[in-house]
């Protein structure tokens, strides 16, 4: 078939006219394609959701009902991780399962890992029975260490998704401001407390970062090591130590019912209050703020009570 010269020119013009449309279509597709960001722990869902808003999808690696401390990877997790564009994890405790899933799915090295604690200054667990300093991995139970993590995650996500850098920056700043304001509200309630020598024991060594916000420290930790129950002799020693140290309050975990906590309460007569580990329940944008607010409320109330009690003496 012979094509005339004029016909060839017309065909070329038509093709060239179609190119911008194709490019535009590709850009639109890229703009519509949202990143799928996996997370391992509940606070990271809240951090990431507040940074990305609706510009990316946040995917929890494990279901809501599971305890990350003891989670064993399921076959469905392997499938899930292969469809992620990045994974936000703690990396220094609580999400060991993520490494197992990465190994099992052969995704190690193939998916960008965002370590929330990269660049975060870590502190040791205080109040233990030993002189050895152990890293406290609970950076997500605090405002200050969370702010460091939010900025770090925001920076890493901006590198992966530069088109949304401005939005991520704006959202992260607003979220950080909200967290700081929440903390300031509780601090205001405590501004009149003078010469308070507050002493507390915690069942779990997870609250050093939270106490640090208030200029305080944990006096005694009851678990001999992370997640371990004390033996009878360890419990007896801890009870003696709590009594000697004049502890004002014992903080235990919500949803942690154990007989040894009742024994401590019975033997010491010290009031038990509850803090949340923030790694259970529903995944939601506001979950971290709600949980942290409850923790700050519990701590503030305990401080005011201890102050009033010491003034009555």
């Amino acid at each position: 078939m012979r094509i005339s010269k004029a016909g060839l020119i017309l065909l070329m013009v038509g093709l060239l006219a179609g190119v911008p449309g194709l490019v535009k279509g590709k850009q639109a597709f890229a703009a519509e394609k949202k990143l799928r960001i996996g997370i391992t722990l509940h606070p990271y869902f809240s951090y990431v959701k507040n940074i990305v808003g609706d510009r990316a999808e946040v995917v929890p690696l494990i279901g809501e009902g599971f305890n990350p401390h003891a989670y064993k990877p399921q076959p469905a997790d392997i499938k899930k991780v292969t469809k992620l564009d990045a994974l936000v994890l703690n990396g220094i405790g609580h999400d060991e399962f993520a490494f197992e899933i990465l190994e099992a799915s052969k995704m190690k090295g193939k998916i960008p890992l965002i370590y929330a604690n990269e660049g975060v200054s870590l502190i040791p667990v205080t109040g233990t029975d030993t002189d050895r300093k152990t890293v406290n991995p609970h950076t997500f139970i605090s405002v200050t260490a969370s702010i460091q993590q939010i900025y770090n995650i925001r920076k890493k996500l901006s590198q992966l998704d530069p088109a949304n850098t401005k939005v991520y920056r704006k959202n992260a700043s607003a979220y950080v401001r909200r967290l700081r304001k929440m903390k300031a509200g509780y601090m205001k309630r405590l501004s009149d407390l003078k010469n308070l020598d507050f002493r507390c024991a915690t069942i779990h060594g997870g609250y050093d970062y939270l106490l640090q916000e208030f200029g305080l420290q944990v006096t005694a930790v009851i678990e001999p090591a992370h997640g371990l129950k004390p033996t009878a002799s360890q419990l007896a020693r801890t009870i003696d130590r709590i009594l000697q140290l004049n502890v004002d309050v014992i903080f235990t975990e919500m949803n942690l019912a154990d007989k040894y906590i009742d024994t401590i309460q019975k033997e010491t007569g010290i009031r038990i209050r509850y803090l949340s580990h923030l790694t259970t329940g529903e995944y939601s944008a506001e979950g971290f703020e709600k949980g942290l607010k409850a923790n700050m409320e519990a701590l503030t109330t305990a401080l005011i009570e201890a102050h009033d009690r010491s003034n009555k003496k």
């Binding site: 990396g91 220094i92 490494f99 190690k108 890992l113 370590y115 929330a116 604690n117 990269e118 660049g119 975060v120 200054s121 870590l122 890293v135 991995p137 950076t139």
Partner: peptide, 18 residues
């Protein structure tokens, strides 16, 4: 000098995971 998250990841997992 801070002891940072990445220092602890290297201590626990080695550099291969960073």
């Amino acid at each position: 000098v801070a002891y940072k998250g990445e220092d602890e990841v290297i201590r626990l997992k080695g550099k291969e995971y960073l």
